Computed example of a mutant assay.
Amino acid sequence: MNESLWNIDQVAAYLGVAVATIYTWRTKKYGPVGRRVGKHVRWDPQVVKDWFAAQPAEVA
């Protein structure tokens, strides 16, 4: 693993959403999968990037 694990603030910043959105997604089993490390949740940056890349592009 070349990068350190991301915390919720880093995931939210990368995806451009609020931290509260990440919490909501987790309760709905949506979004990139995070893993619990003790009492903290951490994300593998590559998993977050892969999840984002797999999302369908929408035309605004």
Score class of each variant (00 low, 15 high):
A60F: 06
K28H: 03
H40S: 10
R26A: 09
V47W: 04
K39E: 07
A12L: 13
Q55Y: 05
K39G: 14
P56V: 03
W25P: 01
M1R: 11
V48T: 04
V48K: 07
Q55V: 05
E58V: 11
N7R: 14
W43Q: 03
V59E: 05
L5K: 14
A57Q: 08
R36S: 05
W6Q: 11
A60T: 04
R42V: 12
A12R: 11
Y23E: 09
Y14H: 15
A54I: 07
A53H: 09
N2P: 14
H40F: 08
V48C: 06
G38D: 05
K49M: 15
M1C: 11
V59W: 07
L15Q: 10
Q55M: 10
A53G: 06
G38V: 06
A57I: 05
F52Y: 13
M1S: 14
A20Y: 05
K49T: 10
Q10D: 14
E58T: 07
H40I: 10
L15Y: 05
P32H: 01
A20V: 11
Y30V: 02
T27P: 00
N2M: 14
D50I: 08
T27F: 02
R35C: 01
P56F: 01
I8V: 15
A12S: 14
V59N: 02
A13S: 15
Y14T: 09
N2R: 15
A18E: 14
V33S: 00
K28G: 01
V17N: 03
M1V: 13
P32W: 03
V47T: 14
K29N: 09
V11G: 09
G16Q: 10
D9L: 14
A12Y: 12
Y30G: 00
Q46E: 14
R36N: 03
D44N: 14
K39A: 09
L15I: 08
A20D: 13
G16V: 11
G34T: 02
V59Y: 04
Y23P: 02
W25L: 01
G31P: 01
P56M: 03
G31H: 01
I22G: 02
A12I: 12
